[in-house]
C-alpha cells in the first residue's frame, strides 16, 4: 500500500465480487429502473413503520449481495454499513441479524464511498478476507427527521432534492472475480458557509471540488483518463456548480462527468433538482455502474459520492453546512 497525501494506492486491488440494489416504486420508474435488482411494490415493504422498512431493505441488500457473490455467509468477516438516521439505527439494527463483526459509519450521502474505502483498505491489508459494505436511505424516514411530516401541505423550493428510497450493498474480496478498486482518495470536510438546507448541492460542491483536485494531483491523472466520473447527489444545481468550480481551477469536466442524483429521475417525475440521500449513489453504483464495469463497457470509473454533514440541531442554531466527499477508482479487470 502506497500513500500519497490523501490518496491510497491499493496494491492487492480488492475486487467487488457481488453487488445488490433495492429501491422504492418511484425510484424504480426512474432512469435506472431496469438495472435495479429489486423494486419494492410500496414504500412500507410489508413493515409497520418506514424505519423498519429501511432496516429490512438493508438486510435484503446484504443478503442479496452475498448471494450474488456466491460465497458462504460464514466466510464474511466484516460488515460496514451506514445510513442517514440518528445513531444510524437502520444499519445497526439490521446488523444484529447477521453473525459478522460490524462497523457503523456515517458520511451522510457519501456513506457508500466511505464504507467501501474502509472495507477496501481492510481487505487490501489482508486483515479481512471478505467485507460487505452497505448503505441505505428512505425518503419517508429522512423527511421526518430533517424536514416536515409527509402529509403536511407545503411546497418544495426549486433547489430541493428528493431523498432516494433505496439500499445498495457490495462484497469486497481478494479472491473471486469482479471489478477492482485501485485507488482511494479520502476527502476533507469543506465548508463554504452555505446555510440553506434546501440547497445541499451548493453546500457539497466545494467538497467534491477539493477531493477531485487532490485526486487528480496525487494520481497525476486528468478527467480524460476515466470512462466515467460520477458524483453522488449534487443534483442538477450542484453538478453545474461543480463544473464551474473545476473550470475556475483549470480542469474541464466533459461528457464523461455525471451526477447520480441528477440522472436518477426522469423529467416527467418532476423531482426539482434530482435525487439525494445515501441510497442515491449506492443504488446507482451497485446496479448500473457495476453492470457496465462487469460488461467492460467502462474500464475506469471515478466514483465520488458527496455528503452534507448537517443536523437539524446545528442548522437551527445558525450553523452552516459542511460537506465531505470520498473518491474511489474502480477498474474493470483486463481480459
Amino acid at each position: 500500500m502506497m500513500k500519497n497525501n490523501e490518496t491510497i494506492y491499493l496494491k492487492n486491488r480488492p475486487k467487488i465480487i457481488g453487488s445488490y440494489s433495492i429501491v422504492g416504486p418511484k425510484e424504480g420508474k426512474g432512469n435506472f429502473g431496469e438495472y435495479f435488482d429489486y423494486v419494492m411494490k410500496d414504500d412500507c415493504f410489508n413493515e409497520e413503520t418506514y424505519e423498519k422498512a429501511e432496516r429490512k431493505m438493508i438486510e435484503t441488500a446484504i443478503v442479496g449481495a452475498i448471494d450474488k457473490s456466491r460465497i458462504n455467509p460464514k466466510d464474511i468477516n466484516m460488515l460496514i454499513a451506514g445510513d442517514l438516521l440518528n445513531q444510524i439505527i437502520s444499519s445497526s439494527y439490521a446488523a444484529r441479524v447477521f453473525d459478522f463483526p460490524y462497523l457503523g459509519v456515517y458520511g451522510a450521502c457519501s456513506t457508500m464511498a466511505e464504507s467501501m474505502a474502509v472495507g477496501a483498505v481492510m481487505v487490501d491489508g489482508q486483515y479481512f478476507k471478505n467485507v460487505v459494505c452497505c448503505t441505505a436511505s428512505h425518503f419517508s424516514t429522512a423527511e421526518r427527521q430533517y424536514r416536515f411530516p409527509l402529509e403536511l401541505g407545503n411546497q418544495r423550493p426549486p433547489a430541493a432534492q428528493w431523498t432516494v428510497t433505496g439500499a445498495g450493498s457490495c462484497v469486497l474480496s481478494l479472491s473471486g472475480e469482479g471489478p477492482e478498486i485501485s485507488m482511494v482518495t479520502f476527502g476533507k470536510v469543506i465548508d463554504y458557509d452555505i446555510k440553506d438546507v434546501n440547497n445541499m448541492g451548493a453546500a457539497m460542491a466545494p467538497a467534491a471540488m477539493d477531493t477531485m483536485l487532490n485526486h487528480f494531483k496525487n494520481t497525476k491523472t486528468s478527467p480524460d483518463d476515466y470512462d466515467l466520473i460520477v458524483t453522488g447527489d449534487l443534483g442538477k444545481l450542484g453538478s453545474e456548480i461543480l463544473i464551474d468550480l473545476m473550470e475556475d481551477k483549470g480542469i474541464k469536466l466533459g461528457i464523461n462527468y455525471g451526477d447520480c442524483g441528477q440522472m436518477y429521475f426522469t423529467r416527467s417525475q418532476n423531482m426539482m433538482c434530482g435525487g439525494s440521500g445515501c441510497g442515491c449513489s449506492a443504488t446507482v453504483f451497485n446496479s448500473f455502474i457495476m453492470k457496465k464495469l462487469n460488461e467492460k463497457k467502462y474500464k475506469k470509473v471515478l466514483f465520488m459520492p458527496t455528503g452534507a454533514l448537517l443536523s437539524t440541531t446545528a442548522t437551527q442554531q445558525g450553523d452552516s453546512i459542511p460537506g465531505v466527499c470520498h473518491a474511489i477508482v474502480i477498474e474493470s479487470v483486463k481480459s
Binding site: P158, A159, A202
Partner: peptide, 17 residues
C-alpha cells in the same frame, strides 16, 4: 472573502420559484 463570493455566486445561480 471566498465564502462570501461563493454565496453570492450560488444565490445568482439558484433557480427561483
Amino acid at each position: 472573502q471566498r465564502n462570501l463570493a461563493y454565496n453570492k455566486y450560488v444565490s445568482a445561480k439558484i433557480p427561483k420559484t
